[in-house]
Amino acid sequence: MRNEFTAIVERDGDWFVSYCPEIPGANGQGRSKEESLESLTQAIELVLEDRREDALRGVPAGALRETVTVG
């Protein structure tokens, strides 16, 4: 389950809208399901990048920083 997220896609008239329940605030839209999913993918990337940057602002200067991989 590495870098996999749930995408919920709904049709709204001529548009497809999508969201990711695991990443609040990540939403996508498009004229096709594929466009909506691509838009959602970009939104997930932006949200995670922003949250990472925000979280790292508060890390003390002397703290060790390591990378872990899940999945």
Rank of each mutant, 00 (worst) to 15 (best):
V17Q: 09
A7F: 09
D14G: 11
A61M: 05
T41A: 12
F16C: 00
V59M: 10
R11Y: 08
I44Q: 00
R31T: 07
I8M: 14
I23E: 06
P24L: 07
G25C: 07
L64W: 02
I8V: 14
T41P: 02
G71S: 10
V59K: 08
V47F: 03
A55V: 01
V17H: 09
L46S: 04
L48N: 06
D12H: 11
G28P: 00
A43K: 03
G58Y: 02
E35N: 05
M1Q: 15
S36T: 01
E53S: 06
N27R: 01
R11Q: 15
L37P: 00
E66C: 05
I8L: 14
I44V: 15
D12P: 09
A63H: 12
I8S: 13
I8N: 14
R52N: 12
A55T: 07
V47C: 02
P60T: 02
A43D: 04
D12L: 13
E34L: 10
G25D: 07
R65N: 06
A26D: 01
L40H: 00
G25Y: 08
G71F: 09
W15P: 01
F5N: 08
M1T: 14
Q29C: 14
S32W: 03
R11T: 12
A26T: 02
T6I: 15
P60F: 03
R31Y: 14
A55S: 12
G25E: 13
F16Q: 00
N3Q: 15
A55I: 03
A61L: 11
P60C: 10
I23P: 01
E53D: 15
P24H: 10
N3W: 13
D14P: 04
A26F: 01
E49F: 06
E38K: 08
C20P: 05
E22T: 04
R52A: 11
G58I: 02
Q29D: 08
G58Q: 05
D50Q: 08
G71Q: 07
T67D: 11
G71P: 02
S18R: 00
G30M: 13
S32P: 07
V68M: 13
R2M: 15
G13H: 08
V70M: 12
P21E: 11
N27D: 06
V17A: 06
L64E: 07
G25F: 07
R57T: 07
E35R: 06
G58R: 06
E49Q: 09
G30L: 07
E22Y: 07
F5T: 08
W15Q: 14
V70I: 13
C20G: 06
F5V: 12
N27T: 09
G28A: 09
G30F: 12
D14V: 10
L40Y: 00
E4W: 11
L48F: 05
L56I: 11
D54L: 05
V68H: 03
